[in-house]
Design a protein around this nucleic acid. Sequence first.
DNA 1: GCCAACGTTGGC
DNA 2: GCCAACGTTGGC
Length: 154
Amino acid sequence: MAHWLLKTEPEAFGIDALARAPRRTATWDGVRNYQARNFLRDEVRRGEQAFLYHSSCALPGIAGIVTVTRAAFPDPSAFDRKNQHFDAGSEPAAPRWYAINVQLARRCARIITLEELRAHADGKLRGLALLQRGNRLSVQPVSDAHWQFIVALE
DNA sequence: GCCAACGTTGGC
DNA sequence: GCCAACGTTGGC
């Protein structure tokens, strides 16, 4: 099974909000980047796990692990005129954007910081998408080797 | 199809 | 708030 990394801004929806959600489950919606959309739509499978990464905050890093409980389905927020992610170009008959459902598997004992991950950028974490220069993807693949190494950092 | 302008992301 | 990097838009 593949592994993933999902970015979120904790002020918008972070691990605390997920922990409080019913069944600790939420719809991962609002992705409006085609490359990230393609990962969601074509590759992310039910039962796979992902790191939940906090960005644009005081301590950027991996905050926890989530399990995908529902594979891709048309992103409802794209159809909702009142939603900030509304996209008139996406229609139910031909959806442009996709969402998944995720459930919090567990919090990390501590935030595994971007700084710490970066310390291994030329070693065990060489090639990790998160560490690529200019990377902005909100859905990223994580290799098995990288996954195991990062889990062990905790 | 090119590419400049613009908007967004996200670390610092 | 700054700014580098990237994606998207739109004129041509």
